[in-house]
């Protein structure tokens, strides 16, 4: 019996497992965010939150290419990055609700989830504010020879921040293991980036000597394959890379951004939602390749749904921190 026939099947089974795992993560982020929207609508969540719905393939594809010890920095739209890097649903929800059991004991909230155990250096409410931190983590990794890489996630709006160019320059000069992942969802809040970013996005990085690549941010397989190739060469000492992921946020800038027609059309949103949903794109492809059937996806979705529901119940029931904790953790 030749294994030549079996091997591709085994290989494709392994691959199918990998894609199903990414499917699960994307669904987890989607359902998490839907739940966040619901918590906001029911006035159970203090403040606002920026939902990642529509962009799931970017965080999931990139983080699937990372090791647990690798670093990420995240943004105001950061829930997806944290979950993709391995954060637990219950402690995420708890943090968003300001509960003691949250990742930051309720001191960070939606925009500041941080978790050393999953290499998450922190989400950041300053646009572009974590570019230095990610680059510094890469400096540590190089100096301490740990083999870690750092991924800096940021939106297209951060292209307006000078810090990014300062640190890309130094990362290139010093060949640091950092990957700048720009999530181009076309908008900075309520303004299209054709009004905020002049010239070409990629050539900005090219000017500093970084390889600059573009990928379809709705296609998790493409993101993963591209990220994997970049991470592998980064780990071998190739220096920094810039990756532009073209994507779209399906919802408002934040949960309270309901009427959006003054800055983008319903047709545009509809087109992305029906034709470019990263979750459907993956499941449709897998079905067409006979890698899984519809029932498998339905099953995953219902499993994740009950996990999310359990986690949100945990967070709602969890106690707030005592007020006397307010002045703790100011200094180490």
């Amino acid at each position: 019996m030749t294994t030549a026939v079996d091997r591709p099947k085994t290989q494709s089974e392994i691959e199918a497992q990998q894609w199903l795992h990414m499917y699960r993560r994307m669904v987890m982020i989607r359902l998490f965010e839907e739940q966040v929207n619901d918590l906001y609508t029911r006035a159970l969540m203090p403040g606002l939150a920026h939902l990642y719905i529509g962009e799931e393939a970017v965080a999931v594809g990139v983080c699937a290419a990372l090791e647990p010890a690798d670093y990420i920095t995240s943004t105001h739209r950061g829930h997806g990055h944290c979950l993709a890097k391995g954060a637990a649903l219950d402690r995420m929800f708890a943090e968003l609700l300001g509960k003691e059991a949250g990742y930051c004991k309720g001191k960070g909230g939606s925009m500041h989830i941080a978790d050393p155990d999953t290499g998450n250096l922190g989400a950041n409410a300053i646009v572009g504010g974590s570019a230095g931190i990610a680059t510094g983590a890469a400096l540590s990794a190089k100096r301490l020879k740990t083999g870690q890489v750092a991924v800096c996630f940021f939106g297209d709006g951060a292209l307006g921040q000078g810090l990014l160019y300062e640190v890309m320059n130094m990362a290139s000069l010093w060949k640091l293991p950092v990957i700048y992942v720009c999530e181009n969802n076309l908008y900075n809040e309520y303004t299209h980036n054709s009004e905020t970013a002049a010239g070409d996005m990629l050539t900005r990085a090219v000017a500093f000597g970084l390889p600059a690549l573009t990928v379809d941010g709705q296609d998790v397989r493409a993101v993963y394959q591209m990220a994997k190739a970049i991470v592998d060469r980064t780990r071998l000492g190739a220096g920094p890379t810039f990756l532009l992921c073209n994507t779209y946020r399906f919802m408002g800038h934040h949960v309270g951004d309901i009427n959006r027609e003054y800055y983008r059309s319903k047709q545009e949103e509809q087109m992305w939602k029906t034709e470019r949903d990263p979750i459907h794109l993956l499941s449709d492809w897998m079905i067409s390749q006979n890698l899984a059937d519809r029932a498998r996806f339905d099953q995953i979705r219902s499993e994740v749904k009950s996990e999310v529901e359990k986690a949100v119940q945990f967070a709602i029931a969890a106690p707030y921190p005592a007020p006397d904790k307010a002045d703790q953790d100011v200094y180490a």
């Binding site: 920095t73 250096l121 230095g132 931190i133 510094g136 540590s140 100096r143 301490l144």
Partner: peptide
């Protein structure tokens, strides 16, 4: 900024 990140990660 790089120093902040480096400080967080062992330097």
């Amino acid at each position: 900024g790089i120093a902040v990140g480096a400080a967080m990660t062992g330097m």
